[in-house]
Amino acid sequence: MLWPHKDLLCISQLTPAEILHVFEMARRFAEINSRPIKKVPTLKGKTVVLFFVEPSTRTKTSFDIAGKRLSADTYSLTASTSSLRKGENLKDSALTLQAMHPDALVLRHQQSGAAAFLARRLSCSVINAGDGWHAHPTQALLDGFTLSEIWGEAMTGKNILIVGDIAHSRVARSDVQLFTSLGMNVRLCAPKTLLPSGVDGWPVEVVPDLTAASRGMDAVICLRLQLERQQAGLLPDLREYARHFGLTAAHLRLANPGVRVMHPGPMNRGVEIDAALADGEQSLILDQVSAGVATRMALLFLYLTRKDQTGEE
């Protein structure tokens, strides 16, 4: 497949065929990760800047490992190590980076739309590693890849429940787009204060009671509850939240046999997910992390070899 996209900003850019192609590529790259020598020369000579304005450890590490395993040179910048700290605005920071001719810029930013903002102004590929509450497409792709490794072709028609703070979750928005695009049924469970405005118009079912919502599910994705939501008055306290929206083994007994549990991390054990459940045999949480490296290898490959494939340049 000739990859037609310069940037990865959100899942709605991708067709179902393109999503499945990413899975296929990730599957091939996953094999490299199990070799004793985990490095291939595929992206030798390519430069990837990891520009993480919003702090993140796991996503940055995942991209860093993915790039290095493909022999790309990766450079890491954070808000505190960049000139943003000196009052430089995002546009100038990005143009400065661009002048050093990277092949791709991986951006994590606390503002929705930051990736699109840079993509319009930079000639290199921009990979959105999470922008505000808007999108986290690489997370959605790794979630989808994780499930496709289990379900294979049978993904269509599976029932997926996303529980927690949907309103402020870029993971939820991207997951909903990806799963519905592949023909899965998505159900959301959250108190109204944590649902996005206009959710009635989304292609999902909203079930506010977790017990009822768990019935008939094939996978449950728990979202991290940011502790500041309580300070913002969106919920009374963590204890009450955990009692009503924390996933437990009892919920899973109502789900379909073989139900899987996922979490994009980092977890608040005992809040959105029962502590033991996270380590249980139904948990895919660590598989997600492994899948993350393979998926990001696939994405770096697709976006960094795009020009060579199409004969541009």
Binding site: S112, G113, S197, G198
Partner: peptide, 13 residues
């Protein structure tokens, strides 16, 4: 504005 578009774009409405 708070509504359909803000919900999709992940912006505070």
């Amino acid at each position: 504005n708070e509504g359909r578009v803000s919900g999709l774009m992940g912006l505070k409405g």
